[in-house]
Nucleic acid binder design. Structure first.
Lengths: 222, 222
DNA sequence: CAAGTTCTATATGTATACGTAAGGAGGTAG
DNA sequence: CTACCTCCTTACGTATACATATAGAACTTG
């Protein structure tokens, strides 16, 4: 049996990445303990774990909130994500197995009509599968873990961007460029294509972040 | 006043990165609580925070140990570190301020005789300052944070590699290549130079890891 | 004598109790 | 009426108590 704190952590992380908890929302120890029918101890431990990865912020004696991103931070994370994802794509171009490549192509084909229909909800799911296959193909679990960590912190802003109609179609065609490069086994081209893909998606929500970030002024200690 | 758990976390992290606690060593809650004169609660919370970042591993009911790396994991982390460091170098080539550049050059000059003398201890310190200036120059706190995280997990193996006589001199001359590229403001060249630097250092200790990793077979649950 | 089993000691996981600081409500003074 | 001060409520941080699973020792049995 796993520990209660781990279960709570995973569920809260899900809530955050699915937008049920949004940046700035308070995470109350008592609230969590009541919701999951555990005492404050595992609830608190779950929060501490999330705080250690940066997903939530704990300020002593002031409680924990889902981390908000300043525009600068969001840009920094985007740059970094582009770096990591493009490296993963480059590695995948060299290391992906035939069956994985076929799966990648299949997902890309499946998602074509979804993208044409601007079905954001389903496209987000295809997008996750697409990238997931690439991480596996890159044969580097650590870079995959860092990407996962980074994406979970950007999740709220990211899904917002994919909910824009125009973004879905562009995303799909950018995926196509990546697929072509991987098929050719060309790491340089795969890297460039993925970098463009991430940054093109990113520019869309860099603006979102900038506008969202003022939701309420904080009394941050100087 | 900060929380006790944060203090304990920082001190344990120091112990790990300085080699006082080595991969595989057990981290006992009671031991920590006695050493730092606190109760088990903050000691335990410190461990959980470290576990969340991967520096230690907690297996339920089996206690926590400083994470050991398999050869595969070490290679993956090296690849990733090379990716992050080279990106930071590329960014720094574009964004570093004049005074930072001068500081970088100064550190590099200072470390020349140290490298010539194969003074590993002092070189390690110069090396940290050198890279630290680059992170600042990259103007991306998130990538710096990921690098810090990754390096702390590789610290034990890394310092081992810099303790090899020949490595110090090569490291210094590789730093020179990076400095030249940054002075020219050439991100591509800076990226390539840094990548070579990290991977060249890495190859040295990939072997170390492979030999160290068998220190004692584990009863990992299948 | 060896192998397996049981028992016990210990450490982990969870709950709860206690001290304290932060924030808000209410009252008072200017 | 407003501004400030005080008191009180509440939630956080830490300590401790309790439950339980695991590891190791000792004993028994084949």
């Amino acid at each position: 049996m796993a520990r209660a704190s781990d279960t709570v952590r995973d569920l809260v992380e899900q809530d955050i990445s699915r937008g049920k908890l949004r940046p700035g929302d308070l995470i109350d120890e008592k609230m969590l303990s009541e919701r999951f029918q555990v005492s404050r101890t595992p609830a608190r431990e779950a929060i501490m774990q999330l705080a250690a990865t940066g997903l939530v912020q704990m300020r002593p004696r002031h409680g924990a909130v889902v981390s908000e991103l300043s525009a600068d931070e969001a840009i920094a994370m985007l740059e970094t994500l582009a770096c990591l994802e493009s490296e993963a794509a480059a590695l995948a171009a060299q290391r992906i197995r035939q069956d994985e490549l076929e799966a990648l192509i299949a997902v890309h084909r499946e998602s074509e009509p979804i993208a044409r229909d601007h079905d954001s909800k389903r496209y987000i799911e295809c997008n996750a599968r697409f990238h997931g296959i690439l991480y596996a193909g890159a044969r580097n679990t650590y870079i995959a873990e860092l990407i996962r960590q980074t994406r979970s912190r950007l999740a709220y802003y990211h899904t917002s961007s994919l909910n824009q109609r125009s973004r879905v179609e562009r995303s799909w065609s950018e995926h196509g460029n990546v697929v072509n490069a991987i098929e050719k086994g060309d790491p340089i081209e795969a890297q460039a294509a993925m970098r463009d893909h991430i940054l093109s998606g990113g520019r869309v929500y860099a603006d979102l972040v900038a506008t969202m970030t003022h939701r309420k002024e904080r009394k941050d200690i100087a």
